[in-house]
């Protein structure tokens, strides 16, 4: 799965390039996140701005990624699209994660 990473102010920003995190790719998502988080900072911000759909398997995978980080590191979410936001709200998982309205701007644009 296409997940690109940048470091911003001590946080790892992981930008998901897939348009869906569903049952077909939930395991790939989790495996790829495990890979990119190996050297990660204390905060990981998951940029979901390109993800239009996430099902309960995808939600479970996001929770699993949070657990992979352990108690000393934190997973935060950013830029949820409407249907993804609905899944988090409906399952009350919106209260479990810090959710940012927007993802940190890409460093490539700042330069």
């Amino acid at each position: 799965m296409d997940i690109r990473c940048e470091h911003h102010d001590g946080a790892l920003v992981a930008r998901v390039g897939a348009d869906r995190i569903d049952a077909a790719v939930a395991i790939q998502f989790k495996d790829r996140m495990r890979e990119v988080m190996q050297d990660s900072a204390t905060r990981v911000i998951l940029d979901l701005s390109r993800v239009g759909f996430l099902d309960s398997s995808g939600l479970g995978a996001v929770v699993a990624v949070m657990k992979l980080l352990g108690p000393d590191r934190k997973l935060e979410l950013a830029a949820l699209t409407p249907t993804v936001e609905k899944v988090f709200r409906l399952t009350r998982m919106d209260g479990v994660f810090t959710i940012h309205a927007n993802a940190p701007a890409s460093l490539h644009h700042v330069r």
């Binding site: 099902d55 309960s56 479970g60 929770v63 949070m66 657990k67 899944v87 399952t91």
Partner: peptide, 23 residues
């Protein structure tokens, strides 16, 4: 039933039928 948890101990599954019934 909506699965719930505390802190890091959050459910990774069991949301499907809850969402189907809710919507």
């Amino acid at each position: 039933v909506l699965p719930t948890g505390v802190g890091l101990d959050q459910p990774e599954g069991g949301f499907g039928w809850y969402m189907i019934r809710a919507l």
